[in-house]
Amino acid sequence: MVRFENVGLRYGMGPEVLRDITFSIEPQSFQFLTGPSGAGKTTLLRLILPALKPTRGLINLFGHDVAGIEKDTLTALRRRMGVVFQDFRLLEHLTTYENVALPLRVQGRDETSYRAEVIELLRWVGLGERMHVMPPVLSGGEKQRAAIARALIAQPQLLLADEPTGNVDPTLARRLLRLFVELNKAGTAIVIATHDIALMDQFDGARRLVLGDGRLHVYD
């Protein structure tokens, strides 16, 4: 569902952060994207979103070449993806509940049609008591869980998560990983960017995409 061919990216006039990246993500697959800090994990995820244009190479999403993609197509593609940003990107003026419900709301769905679903997911990630507060009063871990819940709520076909367990304790990290695994069993392809080795070791069945020196090494 995602295919990169010889993709290179540089920010402005800087050095190439990513070089000759070629790989693909299959439907219902599970992979960790790893590598040292500054290796370009976030950058790679931003290319999939797509929030960045590659400086060279081809990126194909769900069968569409991202170069010259129509806006409507892009919107449709994004509805098939869920994203957890490293810096969460929750909307500060909305409650946790409203933030999590956002992907459903922007599809124009009626609030009553998804309320139960959203509340259930919020309870599952342990935010049942915090659903009516605004993000500024949430702890880092709570924000992270809200961001994860927002990415999951629309049951995307592809989930991109950037350091989704960076701010939570190991127990909760395991619980969240289980959530991702359950989701994967239900058919969602998952990419988790992390440098948490312990987390990766908990799920051996996953592919590992390792970034180093701007290049990608794949370990199946």
């Binding site: 979103l49 919107t75 994004r78 994203v83 990107r89 909307l91 956002l102 922007v106 124009g108 629309a154």
Partner: peptide, 16 residues
């Protein structure tokens, strides 16, 4: 801008 960006990523159309 931040809000507009997030709305785009969660699948909001320009029209919305």
């Amino acid at each position: 801008r931040e809000i507009v960006e997030v709305l785009h990523f969660v699948g909001a159309s320009d029209d919305y």
